[in-house]
Amino acid sequence: MDVFMKGLSKAKEGVVAAAEKTKQGVAEAAGKTKEGVLYVGSKTKEGVVHGVATVAEKTKEQVTNVGGAVVTGVTAVAQKTVEGAGSIAAATGFVKKDQLGKNEEGAPQEGILEDMPVDPDNEAYEMPSEEGYQDYEPEA
Results as ranks from 00 to 15, higher is better:
87 S>N: 15
90 A>G: 02
49 V>M: 15
69 A>Y: 08
69 A>I: 04
53 A>S: 10
6 K>M: 04
16 V>I: 11
81 T>R: 04
4 F>L: 10
140 A>Q: 03
5 M>W: 06
46 E>L: 02
1 M>F: 00
74 V>Q: 01
52 V>F: 14
93 G>N: 03
17 A>T: 06
55 V>R: 01
92 T>H: 03
32 K>G: 01
15 V>F: 11
125 Y>L: 11
47 G>I: 05
19 A>P: 00
16 V>Y: 11
105 E>V: 12
21 K>R: 12
33 T>S: 07
77 V>E: 03
130 E>F: 10
47 G>N: 10
86 G>W: 15
119 D>R: 01
72 T>H: 09
133 Y>I: 03
137 E>T: 07
138 P>E: 02
122 N>W: 05
71 V>W: 14
71 V>N: 07
13 E>H: 03
121 D>F: 08
62 Q>I: 13
114 E>G: 12
84 G>F: 14
13 E>N: 14
132 G>N: 14
14 G>K: 05
95 V>F: 15
25 G>W: 08
10 K>E: 01
16 V>D: 01
4 F>M: 02
80 K>M: 07
114 E>R: 06
114 E>C: 12
101 G>A: 07
116 M>Y: 09
5 M>A: 07
109 Q>W: 12
137 E>A: 08
82 V>Y: 12
61 E>D: 08
131 E>H: 10
46 E>M: 14
28 E>R: 09
65 N>G: 13
113 L>S: 08
29 A>E: 00
41 G>L: 01
28 E>Y: 08
135 D>A: 02
51 G>S: 03
17 A>Q: 07
10 K>D: 02
97 K>Q: 03
130 E>L: 10
88 I>Y: 02
106 G>R: 11
91 A>F: 15
53 A>E: 08
5 M>D: 00
99 Q>L: 15
112 I>W: 09
20 E>P: 00
114 E>P: 06
21 K>Q: 03
45 K>Y: 07
130 E>R: 04
46 E>D: 10
44 T>M: 14
119 D>P: 15
37 V>A: 04
112 I>S: 11
82 V>T: 04
98 D>R: 05
109 Q>H: 09
73 G>R: 07
57 E>Y: 13
32 K>L: 13
61 E>I: 05
98 D>W: 15
23 K>S: 02
38 L>Y: 13
14 G>Q: 14
34 K>N: 01
26 V>G: 01
121 D>Y: 08
101 G>F: 05
105 E>K: 01
43 K>R: 09
113 L>K: 07
76 A>Q: 07
136 Y>T: 02
14 G>S: 14
95 V>G: 13
73 G>K: 11
44 T>D: 00
83 E>I: 13
120 P>L: 10
48 V>M: 09
78 A>E: 01
37 V>M: 08
25 G>Q: 14
132 G>Y: 07
129 S>Y: 12
64 T>G: 09
137 E>S: 09
105 E>H: 01
132 G>R: 15
11 A>I: 14
137 E>D: 07
39 Y>I: 08
96 K>I: 02
102 K>I: 05
